[in-house]
Measured scan of single mutants.
Amino acid sequence: VFVDDHLLEKVLELNAKGEKRLIKTWSRRSTIVPEMVGHTIAVYNGKQHVPVYITENMVGHKLGEFAP
């Protein structure tokens, strides 16, 4: 499973602090992992960042699938 390192670091850091804030990313190719559930990730679609709230059903899919 591929997840960009910088994105995973941000998610794990927020989980350690117990925070839930918006994470901006250009990494549409990253796979959604269970650690991301409950976070809102702003995924770049080529024009703007689209906020995507991550749920359990999204695990295993790519971030780009949810930012048309």
Rank of each mutant, 00 (worst) to 15 (best):
V1K: 12
V1T: 13
V1L: 05
F2Q: 05
F2T: 07
V3P: 05
V3T: 06
V3Y: 04
V3Q: 04
D4K: 00
D4A: 03
D4I: 00
D5G: 15
D5E: 15
D5T: 15
D5L: 15
D5N: 15
L7G: 01
L7P: 01
L7I: 05
L8H: 03
L8I: 09
L8D: 01
E9F: 11
E9Y: 09
E9G: 12
E9A: 14
K10V: 14
K10E: 15
K10Q: 15
V11N: 01
V11T: 03
V11R: 00
V11F: 03
V11H: 01
L12R: 13
L12P: 01
L12T: 08
L12F: 06
L12G: 04
E13C: 14
E13Y: 06
E13Q: 09
E13V: 05
E13M: 05
L14T: 03
L14K: 02
L14P: 01
L14F: 05
N15G: 03
A16K: 11
A16R: 13
K17C: 12
K17P: 01
G18V: 03
G18Y: 03
G18K: 09
G18Q: 08
G18W: 03
E19Q: 12
E19N: 08
E19K: 08
E19L: 10
E19Y: 05
K20I: 07
K20L: 09
K20C: 09
K20F: 07
R21E: 14
L22N: 05
L22H: 06
L22I: 15
L22E: 09
I23T: 02
I23H: 01
K24Y: 15
T25P: 01
T25W: 03
T25R: 02
W26I: 09
W26V: 07
W26Y: 15
S27V: 07
S27I: 07
S27Q: 04
S27M: 05
S27L: 04
R28M: 05
R28W: 07
R28L: 05
R28S: 05
R29A: 14
R29L: 14
R29Q: 13
S30R: 02
S30N: 02
S30Q: 02
T31K: 05
I32C: 11
I32H: 00
I32S: 00
I32Y: 00
V33K: 04
P34R: 11
P34Y: 12
P34I: 14
E35R: 04
E35A: 13
E35I: 14
M36E: 00
M36Y: 05
M36F: 09
V37A: 09
V37F: 11
V37P: 00
V37C: 14
G38Q: 06
G38T: 08
G38F: 09
H39K: 02
H39A: 02
H39C: 03
H39V: 03
T40V: 11
I41E: 00
I41H: 00
I41S: 00
I41R: 00
I41Y: 01
A42F: 04
A42C: 05
A42I: 03
V43N: 00
V43I: 13
V43Q: 00
V43Y: 02
Y44T: 10
Y44R: 05
Y44M: 07
N45I: 07
N45R: 09
N45E: 09
N45T: 09
N45V: 06
G46T: 07
G46R: 11
K47A: 12
K47C: 15
K47E: 08
Q48P: 02
Q48H: 14
Q48L: 10
Q48F: 13
H49M: 10
H49K: 03
H49P: 05
H49T: 04
V50T: 11
V50G: 03
V50L: 13
V50D: 10
V50I: 14
P51D: 09
P51G: 08
P51T: 10
P51E: 11
V52R: 04
V52M: 08
V52L: 10
I54G: 00
I54M: 07
I54Y: 00
I54S: 00
I54F: 01
I54N: 00
T55C: 14
E56I: 12
E56K: 09
E56A: 13
E56T: 13
N57W: 10
N57Y: 11
M58Q: 07
M58D: 05
M58A: 08
V59M: 11
V59C: 14
V59N: 04
V59W: 04
G60F: 15
G60W: 15
G60Y: 14
H61I: 09
H61M: 12
H61V: 09
H61C: 14
H61F: 14
K62Q: 09
K62W: 06
K62F: 08
K62V: 13
K62H: 08
K62M: 11
L63C: 02
G64P: 00
E65L: 11
E65A: 11
F66N: 02
F66A: 04
F66R: 02
A67L: 05
A67C: 09
A67T: 04
P68G: 11
P68C: 13
